[in-house]
Amino acid sequence: MIGLGLLNGLIVTMKAAIRGPVTVQYPDRRVGLLGAARELGMSPFQFLVKRPKDAVKAAAGFATVEDKIAQGPRFRGQDFNWYEDRCTGCASCAKFCPLGIIEIVTSPSDTLKSQGEVYNIDVFDIDIGRCMFCGICVEVCPYDALHMGSGFELGTYERKDLVISVDALRTKKNTPSTWFRPQLEETAYNPHSGESRPWTEVGRHEQPTDEELNERWVDER
């Protein structure tokens, strides 16, 4: 019968309207009186009596609840995590970056007895303005020194602010993404909990002792 299809369309849209929105509001969610009360874990009546000022605010639609999207722990974010203690300055990341956006400048380090095996990192610039977050730099890092981050909120006013410098990498709190790091995943680590990881816990293998290093790099040569 003519008109049935049109009617069906109306029914579907009305069903969707009753089901309510599925969108996630970012960075905070506007809640009404009921929503605010639910967030605080009280009944709306309790909420009205105990915190009338907030209740009025909520009823007027001004109450907000922080609402973050549930990101996957493997999310490849733009704030790279770098563990200097693990980095040897081999520049594999720079070499295998498909876009060539990583710049590394090293100088010989005098601090370690086995010279030539670890370098001072003078420059470690990652130009995330051109980065496509493929993660190949992380994949090829032989010592698990570089990790993807989990952030996505680095809006800046100038392009040059999009270059992550070595100082920024050094001072940053490290919450590495578990992307390509099964060892992190095995410990059920979630980067979005905000908990940072020390360098000793993020590698695939134990940090070699001095003896091992000597054996590998000095004695065998």
Partner: peptide, 19 residues
């Protein structure tokens, strides 16, 4: 707001009470 509801969205809700 209504179009938002019909489309499983929230519709405008930032400026002023309930947008």
């Amino acid at each position: 707001r209504l179009l938002g509801r019909f489309q499983s969205r929230s519709g405008p809700n930032r400026w002023g009470p309930y947008g």
